[in-house]
Nucleic acid binder design. Structure first.
Lengths: 343, 343
DNA sequence: TCAAAAGTGTTATCCTTACACCCATGT
DNA sequence: ACATGGGTGTAAGGATAACACTTTTGA
């Protein structure tokens, strides 16, 4: 029943490692310049019993970082699309690569002086290993809606997508549930449709399909298909292979998970102020939240407890410090920040 | 950077194919008797561009069934655990197998006469191919809480788990967030903790870890570890390889997804009564739901519309027939059956 | 006429959203 | 004193959970 043998198949493990510094969400990348990638490496089942163990050891070797929270995202098997063509050298990665994407969360810096130093120190270790934390919105500038709808959406993205929709409003592919026009409306929240910040992957794939991101042009070139002139040079920093798609998946998952699991605290230092917590949530979700409602939310969910100390480093009235109440994990089934539409 | 070659690695594709017949949720299995398995086969990247395409073609060849809704579940890479030892022949599947699990939903029968025939016809085709739909609660008898907490939970499972907890209440493994006692409380809803019907996988893995399911004994035997006498012979029908774990993952995902995506309708015939819809949801979630609230829910969510016809086959007053309103897909972002605790 | 299932009306409660105002510190 | 951010009270509206009763068919 299982006659086939492994036919030169390789499994690539890829990690989207996230940290938040102040109000900037960061992603760890290796090999900067025009050939940025997520930390990755092949899975070797002889050395590692599980995929996750393999991933941890690869990341540790490649970035000198020991991971805490890790979660599997998705397994991509596409050959034609994305997987071909890396950065500079045309990137021939071997015969057939299936990539398993992971999301990892890590603390990057405490608040105040001591924290800053720790941060700098670990950054040096990373730099020696050739890895850097970079703002993730560099790769997805259209995903930051904290100060309202980004100008580039109206000025560049929507006009280009509308033109693409006009080419074939109902879409050729009958296997799709939704046509081009509907997808544009739903994924970007145009024409009165609500904007859903969790649809990061859907938006990226739409831009890819419309040929508006660099990876789409690269992959078309590699497969010999025609590449029409790109009206939008540089719609976010591209990445090697399908790594930006994995990052989009990671952001989507994180934005969704925030709401039903207390994952934010994996990104926070031991103690923090409520405003810092709110800034972190806002950084990830890309939305602005309502202060009072956010506080009540956190309070009624009993997610945190006051340490009794206060922080002075805020520029105004000193803020109470809080810590995560680990007990909630065993108290309620879904202890997340159930942000509504206003948070 | 990617020097390694595929070292005899194989990717197995596995499908948990679900249908609901009346109030019985069914799962398609191949090879009955004491060696039941999910339809599965290796991924061949030369023939199939994506994992999902490979899966569809395998399933079609193996069960004569064309799949509609398909979704990826998880990729398991364990060697030591689960993957060893199949059914009869000790099941040596090859050097190293990574298994990618999929969930598929399919309609099995319409209501009334015509439907029954169609059902019988397709079942014959399946039987010829060696595949059968079986009630999924045969594999997870402790998951059906529609008529209250199943007797076997109190009579067999909880006593055995309590004994296992007593062995090491706080658990040895420090990497775990929760000890044995806590996990028992949370996953099975004892000591006042709420029962969460979505934690199907967690419950199965707890039973596996406690050595209470047949697969645990089988895998321990295969790896030469001691197997202490099993006080519970036959805690649900076992399956080959890690297939019961994949099925548990499928049920978990389906129970969760029901609440925020209109996936039930993939299991319903073109038209149906509200009670049939409720029975289907109850069958999957394993809970009893409140009739009036369920109806109001469906109605206010505008998930269905009346066809104008009525069904007479219900034994009482004729029921109005409804169909799924596909438009909701483009109206609201999360059009599921947001069942609370009472539904 | 009775069993069986369909289908409706109404209320108490809680959560979400939104409003506007007061407090404690550094400069 | 004033700018800066921290921190609160409370009311309107909507969703949820829970209650019990009427209607229409087949046997």
């Amino acid at each position: 029943m299982s006659e086939a043998r492994g036919s030169g198949l390789e499994i690539g493990l890829n990690a989207a490692i996230v940290a938040v510094k102040g109000d900037v969400p960061m992603i760890l990348t290796v090999g900067g310049g025009d050939d940025e990638a997520l930390p990755f490496g092949p899975f070797d089942p002889v050395r590692h019993r599980t995929l996750e163990i393999g991933l941890r050891s690869w990341v540790e070797a490649q970035t000198a970082l020991r991971l805490g929270y890790v979660e599997q995202l998705y397994t991509f098997g596409d050959r034609g699309r994305y997987a071909r063509g890396g950065g500079r050298g045309g990137g021939d990665v071997g015969p057939h690569v299936v990539s398993v994407g992971y999301l990892a969360l890590t603390r990057v810096a405490g608040r105040g002086e001591g924290g800053e130093e720790a941060m700098t120190a670990s950054q040096e270790a990373l730099a020696r290993a050739g890895a850097t934390f970079r703002p993730w919105y560099d790769h997805f500038p259209w995903e930051d809606w904290r100060r309202g709808r980004p100008a580039m959406v109206d000025e560049a993205i929507l006009p280009a997508l509308r033109a693409w929709v006009a080419e074939a409003p109902e879409d050729a592919d009958p296997a799709r549930a939704l046509g081009r026009a509907e997808r544009l409306r739903l994924f970007f929240g145009t024409e009165g449709a609500p904007f859903d910040e969790e649809k990061v992957l859907e938006r990226y794939e739409l831009l890819y399909e419309a040929g508006l991101v660099e990876e789409a042009r690269r992959d078309r070139r590699a497969s010999g298909r025609p590449v029409h002139g790109n009206p939008l040079a540089g719609l976010g920093r591209p990445m090697r292979f399908d790594h930006r798609r994995i990052l989009a998946t990671a952001i989507s998952r994180l934005r969704a998970k925030l709401k039903y699991r207390p994952v934010v605290f994996e990104l926070m230092p031991e103690s923090f102020t409520l405003t810092e917590l709110q800034r972190t949530v806002e950084a990830i979700s890309g939305r602005h939240l309502h202060k009072q409602n956010f506080r009540r939310l956190v309070e009624t969910a009993a997610l945190v407890e006051a340490t009794g100390e206060t922080s002075l480093a805020t520029g105004g009235r000193p803020a109470s410090l809080y810590r995560f109440r680990r007990e909630v994990l065993s108290e309620r089934p879904a202890p997340g920040l159930r942000l509504g539409t206003r948070g």
